[in-house]
Amino acid sequence: MSALIEARNLTIHRTGSTEPVLRDVDFRILSGEIVTVLGPNGSGKSSLVRALLGHLPLAAGRITRRPDLRVGYVPQRMQFETAIPMTVRRFLSLPRRIGDDAAALVLARTGADGMQSRQMTQLSGGQFQRVLLARALLHDPHLLVLDEPTQGLDQPGIVAFYRLIEEVRRQTGAAVLMVSHDLLVVMRASDRVVCLNGHICCEGSPDHVSGAPEYRALFGTGAEGTLALYRHHHDHDHDGDEACDRHHHPAGAS
């Protein structure tokens, strides 16, 4: 299968500096995959996403995107001025106006039915995330990019949101690239978890990464098993896990 986005030997410098925030990163995401990028604050997660989407210059390496690629994006933070009214319906029509039927359909898909007239500032955390997701789905993306999508949600809200993402993937076939810094909110449905800290420390299935020495070295010896918040029961097979030391010992290296 061809990749939706593929990065080879990616290096990115901090703004105004020659110091790399990311170095020698190889990354790809295939159609229909759920990939979680995990790492502490300052590890380069947001820089990786911005580079993959073409919003950040590269110091080295190259990025290839499928020519017809459509991306839906759920940002880490979005704030609204309380003094300026903004209904859900109006928000969905920014920057491109959509019809009432399309708005109702996409809100129903994310479990936000009937919220068109609600003010964005009056939504709960879970409702807000569902509306953001609805907006990201408006134009049938091939890839959904979710930057810290469960930030501020409680544990039941996190589990509900992850179930929703899994259902969206099932219905649409869209790939999902999710970014997180919180060990407790990694989605068990992830086909791959990529552990990042300026470079790729390790990657593989959630079970594989949670037991990897590179993961424990980065997050502490007590971190093993913390990826078990939301257990996904697979009814399908994925290709074999990536070895966690793949980036330390490439094929052919001695």
Rank of each mutant, 00 (worst) to 15 (best):
Val131Pro: 05
Arg188Asn: 15
Pro206Ala: 03
Met187Gly: 10
Gly16Trp: 02
Cys244Thr: 12
Thr121Cys: 14
Asp182Ser: 06
Arg109Phe: 05
Pro141Asp: 05
Asp154Phe: 01
Pro156Leu: 11
Gly125Asp: 04
Val194Ala: 09
Leu105His: 11
Leu10Asn: 08
Ile200Ala: 06
Ala251Phe: 13
Ala108Trp: 08
Thr64Gln: 14
Arg23Asn: 02
Asp235Pro: 03
Pro67Ala: 12
His142Tyr: 00
Ser210Trp: 03
Arg89Cys: 07
Gly211Phe: 01
Asp235Ser: 13
Val25Trp: 07
Gly240Val: 10
Ala217Asn: 14
Pro67Phe: 00
Leu164Asp: 04
Phe80His: 13
His247Met: 07
Ala174Gln: 03
Arg90Val: 14
Gly240Phe: 13
Pro67Ser: 12
Glu166Ile: 07
Leu94Pro: 00
Asp26Thr: 14
Arg246Phe: 08
Gly111Val: 11
Ser190Val: 05
Pro57Val: 03
Gln155Met: 14
Ser17Trp: 03
Val49Asn: 02
Glu19Leu: 14
Ala175Met: 06
Gln129Leu: 08
Leu4Gln: 07
Met187Lys: 07
Met1Thr: 13
Phe128Thr: 04
Asp235Lys: 15
Ala108Ile: 06
Ala136Ile: 08
Met120Thr: 05
Asp182Trp: 00
Phe91Glu: 04
Pro149Val: 02
Asp24Trp: 06
Leu144Ala: 10
Leu144Ser: 08
Leu4Trp: 12
Arg65Glu: 01
Ala104His: 09
Leu183Val: 10
Arg65Gln: 05
Ala189Val: 00
Gly61Ser: 02
Asn41Lys: 10
Val131Cys: 05
Leu105Val: 07
Thr82Asp: 11
Gln151Phe: 07
Gly198His: 11
Val186Ile: 15
Pro20Gly: 04
Arg23Thr: 13
Arg130Trp: 00
Arg246Glu: 05
Ala83Glu: 14
Glu214Thr: 06
Ile98His: 05
Arg118Gly: 03
Thr221Gly: 04
Ile5Trp: 01
Pro85Gly: 03
His236Ile: 02
Arg23Gln: 14
Val37Tyr: 11
Gln122Val: 05
His238Cys: 02
Pro57Met: 02
Tyr230Ser: 06
Pro20Val: 09
